[in-house]
């Protein structure tokens, strides 16, 4: 019996090995060709993806830089036909709206995030679901809500804009806060709790400092997302050609300038739209890059 298994001609394993190797040999050319094609297609798709994105950036830079004159930064928006218009009022509007939204959203989002990370229960489930809903909701609907909640009562105002922008930032902030806090090694908290410290003290002294890089990154990303939103502002701050730093009145903002001027037939207004687009893009990129650099720096500082 043992002799039979050792006989190469009747050994089913050797037979199968030969069969498989023949098939593999016969198909290897075809398989490698398919593999090459697949990989080439991936490269082509990468190129197809990168080209339009580079085009957007380069185009915005080229057109936007040309619009960056002293007037652009110091003058307010002016109607078509009147020269030397700028976006000073829009810069101030975006800054004020962004600031108010951030001041309210960051602490509130952080507290909700803390709650999600530290307590489980029905409310946590509801809040998590609500945050999911809000991340998936089209931003224009948030604008409509801002309109219903504030504009119909108090009229168009920077505050209504900040409310809408804040609602867009809030779920981002909550998720970022929860993730950052959950990332803190549990031993750190347990050590504090074991010493008998109150949860609040442990949180303030141990958890929040440890989670700080994540919280800062999350906040900056939320701000970057918030200030670029256009649709909610269109429904809440209305836009105005006058300088106004009072958030209870209608305000101008950079995304609005871009939107309103982009389809104008007047080339000087379109030019201002490009300038505003470049400015807004730079602000968003600086916030994004800044959050990475800062997070990396804080991380290194810790070690």
């Amino acid at each position: 019996m043992s002799a039979m298994t050792l006989d190469p001609l009747s050994d089913p394993i050797l037979e199968r090995r030969q069969k498989i190797q023949e098939i593999a040999q016969a198909s290897v050319g075809r398989r490698k060709a398919y593999s090459k094609i697949f990989i080439v297609v991936c490269w082509v798709f990468l190129a197809l993806a990168v080209v339009p994105l580079i085009a957007v950036i380069v185009y915005t830079f080229a057109k936007g830089i040309a619009a960056w004159t002293p007037d652009f930064f110091t003058q307010v928006t002016k109607p078509e036909g009147i020269p030397n218009g700028g976006v000073w009022n829009a810069i101030v509007g975006t800054f004020v709206i962004g600031l108010i939204a951030t001041l309210v959203t960051v602490p509130l989002g952080l507290l909700v995030g803390l709650g999600l990370a530290q307590f489980e229960g029905k409310l946590a489930g509801v809040v998590r679901f609500a945050a999911d809903v809000m991340t998936g909701v089209p931003s224009i609907l948030i604008g409509i809500f801002g309109y219903i909640a504030l504009v119909t009562r108090f009229g168009y105002s920077g505050l209504a804009g900040a409310f809408a922008i804040g609602l867009i930032m809030l779920p981002i902030m909550i998720r970022a806060g929860e993730t950052a806090i959950r990332g803190v090694p549990p031993q750190l908290q347990e050590a504090g709790i074991a010493l008998g410290a109150r949860k609040f003290i442990v949180t303030r002294r141990v958890v929040l400092p440890a989670a700080l890089p994540g919280i800062i990154t999350g906040s900056l990303l939320a701000v970057a997302r918030g200030i670029g939103e256009t649709a909610p502002l269109l429904l809440t701050i209305f836009g105005t050609q006058f300088f106004n730093s009072n958030p209870t009145k209608p305000m101008e903002a950079l995304p609005l300038v871009i939107y309103n001027y982009s389809s104008q037939p007047y080339s000087d207004l379109v030019q201002i739209a490009w300038g505003a687009a470049l400015l807004l893009m730079m602000a968003v990129l600086v916030l994004n890059i800044g959050s990475r650099v800062l997070a990396g720096f804080l991380q290194r500082e810790r070690q």
Partner: peptide
């Protein structure tokens, strides 16, 4: 086997 081009169910 599938990676190597074997398609016969029996094998």
């Amino acid at each position: 086997l599938r990676f190597n081009g074997v398609r016969k169910k029996a094998l």
